[in-house]
Structure formats: C-alpha cells, structure tokens
C-alpha cells in the first residue's frame, strides 16, 4: 500500500480499500468520503453520526462503513475523526463547481470568501479555490471544518488548502 510507504493514497488504492459514494450519489449533493484504510482501534465517527450512516461495530478495528444513502453530508464526522480522515464532497454544488469540506486545525483559520490554494493528498497545489463556509462550533472542539469551492474536475483530488501564513 503506497499510503504506508509515502503517506498518501492514490485514488485507485482508496477505491480498493474503501467503499466510495457512487457518481449517482455524488450528483445528489454533499456526502461523506471516508479515507480511513488501516484497521486501528478507533470508532468516534460511528457515535458522531446522528443519522446512523457510519458503522464500525465490533471489533473496533473494523474499517468504518458509510451508508451513502443515509449520509446527509452534514460534516459532523469530519470534525470528530481523530485521524482527520473524513471529507465531505459535493459534486452538485453548481453546474461547473464542486465543494470539498475538510478538517483544518492550523492558525489562522480561513475566513469565508477568502481566495486560497487547494491542495491534493500530497500537498501539491491543484487549483485556486474560494472558501464558502467555515464551521467551528464548540462541539467541534477546535477542529474547524472548512469548505472550499473548486472546479468540478478536481473534486476527487482536493483534500485541503495550502496553510495560511501567520501575519507577524
């Protein structure tokens, strides 16, 4: 698995290891994409989902299974995953654009409407992006969930943004 050699997943690998939403489901709106592929003892995502869409069960080393039909794309699991391995992708955001929501635990936290550089799983710049939403309620416990708008063709690649520099 290239993930444990290099630290990132090739999209083909991810598809092999996790059940991803179908294109049909993607077209219906936001949906969770779980990129957790190692059997580690961890299950907060299961309790985080109030729609019962995420299932781990017993033993807790099971990989999370997401029912994409039950998932509403609310993004609560994104903030609860200790591994920061859950994203929400909305391929129906507009005719030409998609959104990707990801956890972002760096300072400063981006603000809505900010222009940022979207990066892929390797941290390489992919495209320019616009911040459309930043959720950071107390319940997220300092793991803000940032949503960026990007050209639709990059929806499967973009997973974060280039870190913003502190103004000092």
């Amino acid at each position: 698995m290239s993930l444990i050699n290099t630290g990132y997943l090739e999209p083909e690998e991810l598809r092999e290891l996790q059940k991803l939403p179908s294109e049909e489901r993607y077209q219906k709106g936001p949906v969770a994409v779980i990129e957790c592929v190692q059997e580690i003892p961890c299950n907060p995502c299961e309790a985080a989902c109030r729609f019962g869409a995420i299932r781990i069960g017993d033993p807790i080393t099971n990989l999370p299974q997401c029912s994409h039909e039950k998932c509403t794309g609310c993004g609560v699991c994104v903030s609860k995953c200790p591994g920061l391995a859950i994203f929400v992708v909305n391929k129906a955001y507009s005719e030409t654009t998609a959104t990707v929501s990801f956890p972002y635990e760096y300072m400063p936290v981006p603000e809505q409407d900010m222009a940022v550089t979207a990066v892929n799983r390797k941290g390489e710049p992919v495209c320019e992006a616009k911040v459309v939403k930043v959720l950071n309620p107390a319940a997220f416990d300092h793991t803000p969930v940032v949503t960026v708008e990007i050209p639709k063709e990059y929806a499967d690649d973009v997973r974060s943004i280039r870190r913003l520099q502190e103004a000092d």
Partner: peptide, 23 residues
Amino acid sequence: APKIGGYAVHAAKIRRAGVPIYT
C-alpha cells in the same frame, strides 16, 4: 526504514500539509 512506521492517517495529515517524507 522503507516505510512509514506510524498510523497512515497521521502521515496523510502532514503530507497534505506538504511535508516531504524521505523513507
């Protein structure tokens, strides 16, 4: 070592942040 020792999700976080990993 030829591969990353810790949890892949931890490695993935720092890769996304652009840290080069030299195994």
